[in-house]
Design a protein around this nucleic acid. Sequence first.
DNA 1: ATCGCCACCGTTTTT
DNA 2: CGGTGGCGAT
Length: 745
Amino acid sequence: MRCVTVAAMQQSLFPDGHIPSEQNKQSGGGNSISRQDLNDAQYEAVTSTEGPLLVIAGAGSGKTRTLVYRVAHLIDMGVAPENILLLTFTRKAAQEMLWRAGLLVDSSCQQVTGGTFHAIANMLLRRYGHHLGYSPNFTILDRSDAEGIINLLKSSLSLSGAGKRFPSKRVIINMISKSVNKSVPIDDLLYDEFSHLEEFADDIFTLKDHYKHFKFEHGLMDYDDLLVNWRRVLQESTDVRREVSERFAYIMVDEYQDTNPIQAEIVRLLAYNHNNVMVVGDDSQSIYSFRGADFRNIMDFPDIFPDTKIIKLEENYRSTQPILSLTNDIIARAGEKFTKALFTRVEGGVKPIVYGGRDASEESRYIVSKIQKLQEEGSALREIAVLFRSGFHSYKLEIDLTANQIPFEKRGGLKLTESAHTKDVLSYFRVHVNPDDNLSWNRILLLIDKIGPKTAQKILGIIRSADDPFDALRDYPAAPGWKQGLNQLSELFASLKDPGISLLEQFEILLKYYEPIFERIYYDDYPKRRKDLDQLKTIFEGYSDLQSFVADTALDPPEIETVEFDESDRLILSTVHSAKGLEWDTVFVINLADGRFPLAHILPGDEMEEERRLLYVAATRARHNLYLTYPLEVMSADRRFTRTKLSPFLADVTPGLYDSTGTSGYSFSTGIPDSPIAYKQRPVIPVKKEKSINTSLMQKGTNVRHPFFGEGQVERVVSDKTVDVMFDKHGLKTLHLDYARLEII
DNA sequence: ATCGCCACCGTTTTT
DNA sequence: CGGTGGCGAT
């Protein structure tokens, strides 16, 4: 049996173990970086057991391999695997890295700890969160929890003062819903909506405080809280900081350009004892700014960790020269960046092909026929990928692929823990483990027929004030319509409490109760959903106590061990974001029409720059064949067809770097001068010129006042119009002076 | 007042 | 597909 470390396996965080022998390690095959790929100084830096290290590398240049190489090397030097912490972008990436490093170890489960920042935060906060007063039973919110939160909030939110005037309760509820769904901090939303209403600033603070306390009291954390609280624990408890820093003597971070300032701070705090940090990243592949990622973290790294050794990798091992020439040309037109001219020794290759179809159907047909041709030529489907900007861009293609019996796997869909039925099952267990989990109570009460939000609220009110919630549930004066449903729920918990039954029996008992509900609620598609429940059961079987099962599934379920390498030969459909770090022989990037990629509502400036990098990431996934396709007609929101043209990113490219093809009769190569803007008109941003000032009057330390954030000091002048300000009450904000009414005081 | 069902609309990206 | 709003039933 093989073990892979994933952060979710909480019980193995601090295992006793031994160092794996050389023979336990598998070679990463042709993917291993070799001594020859690095010059002497680079090799020395990568294999040194000391000091901070920054690897800046282009797409396909082996940055992850370099990181893995160092992990393997450290272990060879006698560093115990459990003293190494790998922070990666997705958990899958962590597993893949460990696999490559040969750190899959037989039965002993000697492990390198690895995972996402959030997964590690989840794990460590449950262990150390009591330093901030957090119970180890906290719940992590995802977008499907908004409804439940609001139901809880409605009963607790009295909104005295704030609610009677503007903003209305309705507006507030909507805003909190948006905050949870989009994972946007409530501060930012309040600021966006109400910064013009200075007289309500106090009300908004009250509301914000209320929401913060509400989350704390209910043990709820959204994704941001997870990081913020984890940083606080490290900042405020020297004991924890020392213990963790000693435990993780080597810290590795992949895709560092996608970290946000909080994550960068966490890295610094984690390494407080030793500075043994290696980060790897590429500023040209920074595509997560919407989530707060800032590629300046890479630039700032050497300042935060003095004596950083910097390694620049400029050779590309992935793509042929024609593909590289095109991708280099695309990224060369970007604004701020480290300049890296990538070159390759991979010889030959064909030029990328740009295809314009009449509409989405024709585009889709072209792709299907190309895929069929590639198959005939002997390509495996798993070596082909279709990438797109947004999830729904592939709908048409999915239909055509199904019709042509081409199997495919769509990446970036709903995760197991996000699907409603999985959340249902987990909620019963959560309540069983922690009767104070009101969010889960709310959920399972709503599942009973004839109980809606209002009734659930009433029952919850009684349960919460009772000494024993389960007794209160049993004795609740139910109305005839749902009396039986409530009794059955009560009986369920009574049976689960029986100390004589095993964990697996508990699962069976629960399923027996849940089954009828399941079939009633998901009557149209429950056979499909049942597979997820089976999968959940398999995961459940790997646990010896309910507590760790609940903790581990709070964020993401541990993956079921697959004994064999995945043999299924399927085409990959993926958003560009989910394709990060992966590569295929043939890549199709579809829907490259103006308004689809970049999306219609993207504004010129930083957003547009990120779209460009996104295309760069997409196109650099290809090893040998790159197809860029677009429709000349798209269906807009009002279901009308409108003509469009090639994405400006491709229209700009130096001529000759790709071959054009497409439907005859359409002059796609010359562009369509008279085509109207297809979908939304770009909003005109009102610029308040009269009050705008510029940064020439400011420097670090200048005292400023903002109508919403209050007083603060300038932290950094970023450009002539933007400035970072540390506000006394609201922390660090980046402000644009054309929009923010900042006063110097 | 509350619940459940049906029809309709618009889709960024994700830990 | 998921969130929302209207409407009939209880």
